[in-house]
């Protein structure tokens, strides 16, 4: 069978779930960030795939670019937060940042 839209979507779904799993399970804040990047990439694949296979011209690609830019900004801020967290807790393990625990 020929590769169509669904193939890309399935790929993106797998990527998304992998990212999700990383976000949920990883203790290390940096690894969680990596998971987030995976999710964003999955979303970007969807945007670009829809841009290619539907009648929406280039809009999907523009969105993908915006997402990439936003991800860069998020990464920068998140990293700053991680460094800050490390200063305070001497650790970047997220399960130790639980001062809101009930």
């Amino acid at each position: 069978m020929s590769v169509g839209l669904n193939h890309y979507l399935f790929l993106a779904a797998v990527l998304f779930v992998l990212g999700l799993y990383a976000v949920i399970t990883k203790k290390n804040a940096v690894t969680v960030l990596m998971g987030i990047e995976l999710i964003l990439n999955a979303a970007n694949i969807n945007f670009v795939a829809f841009s290619r296979y539907t009648d929406t011209d280039m809009d999907g690609q523009v969105f993908a670019i915006f997402v990439i830019v936003t991800a860069a900004a998020a990464a920068a801020v998140a990293l700053a937060i991680v460094l800050n967290l490390y200063e305070r807790l001497k650790s970047i393990n997220l399960d130790e940042a639980d001062s809101l625990s009930g």
């Binding site: 970007n44 670009v48 795939a49 841009s51 690609q61």
Partner: peptide, 13 residues
């Protein structure tokens, strides 16, 4: 993922 973009004709992305 970049390769996938190329396959989807999104060279700039």
């Amino acid at each position: 993922v970049a390769g996938i973009y190329v396959l989807l004709a999104a060279d700039f992305v």
